[in-house]
Design a protein around this nucleic acid. Structure first.
Length: 192
DNA sequence: CTACCGATTATCT
DNA sequence: GATAATCGGTAGT
C-alpha cells in the first residue's frame, strides 16, 4: 500500500475530493492490548470546501481559532465538533495558489477492524457504521485531539493509502449547508 | 419506507 | 444569543 504524499493534496480542492474516492482511510487504534490495530475503510463520499471562493466553507470569512488548520499545510486532518455531539473529519487540500481548503470525508465502506468499529459505535451489525461524517469519526474514534495531525507521516496514526480506482464517479450539491448551495462539490462512487 | 424533531455545545457575531 | 459540513428515535404513510 502506498501512502498519499503532500503532492497529492497540493492541488485544486475539488480534484483532491474527487480523487480521494476509492482510497483507504487508515486509523491505527490502541485498544489497550499494547498493539495498534488497523481500522480502515474505503472512502465512498467526499465534499470539497474552498476558501474566499466558497461561502459555505469555514474558511470563507478568514482565519479563526477553529479553522486555523485549514490555512496551514495540506495533507493534515481538520477535525471539528458540530451540533453539540458529532465530529467531522476533513483533509486539508488546496492548490498552492489558494490560502485554504479542505475535503470533508462523508462516508466510508468498512474494510479492516469492523468488530472494533461496531464496539466503538455500540452497534451489532455493520450497517450504517461509517456512512455519515458523524458516524465514521465515531467508528474510527477520531476526535479533536487529532486536529492538525499530519496524514502524510509514516508514523502518524491516521493515514490515507492508495487503493482502488472507482469505475464511475458522480457529483452533486453538498449536504447540510445554507450558503453556496448551487456548487456541485460533493463526490461519490456510483454503483452502476 | 419517508418525515419530522430533539439532543447538546463549541464557535462566532 | 444564534447557529451549525448531523444523527437517531419516533411517528406517520
Amino acid at each position: 500500500m502506498v501512502r498519499l504524499d503532500v503532492d497529492f493534496y497540493a492541488r485544486n480542492t475539488e480534484n483532491v475530493a474527487r480523487d480521494l474516492l476509492g482510497k483507504k482511510l487508515v486509523r491505527m487504534y490502541d485498544d489497550g492490548s499494547g498493539k495498534l490495530k488497523r481500522l480502515s475503510g474505503m472512502i465512498y463520499e467526499t465534499e470539497a470546501y474552498g476558501s474566499k471562493n466558497d461561502p459555505a466553507s469555514h474558511a470563507f470569512s478568514g482565519l479563526t481559532n477553529r479553522n486555523s488548520v485549514m490555512f496551514s499545510e495540506v495533507g493534515k486532518a481538520y477535525v471539528y465538533f458540530i451540533y453539540g455531539m458529532h465530529h467531522c473529519m476533513n483533509v486539508t487540500a488546496h492548490s498552492p495558489k489558494r490560502d485554504a481548503g479542505a475535503v470533508l470525508i462523508r462516508s466510508l465502506i468498512p474494510v479492516e477492524g469492523i468488530n472494533t468499529m461496531m464496539f466503538l459505535c455500540n452497534m451489532k451489525n455493520k450497517l450504517n457504521l461509517t456512512n455519515g461524517p458523524g458516524r465514521l469519526t465515531k467508528a474510527l474514534d477520531i476526535n479533536k485531539s487529532h486536529n492538525g495531525l499530519n496524514l502524510t507521516n509514516k508514523q502518524s496514526i491516521l493515514q490515507i493509502e492508495d487503493d482502488i480506482k472507482p469505475k464511475k464517479i458522480v457529483s452533486t450539491t453538498r449536504i447540510g449547508i445554507s450558503r453556496a448551495q448551487e456548487k456541485c462539490w460533493r463526490y461519490l462512487i456510483s454503483n452502476d
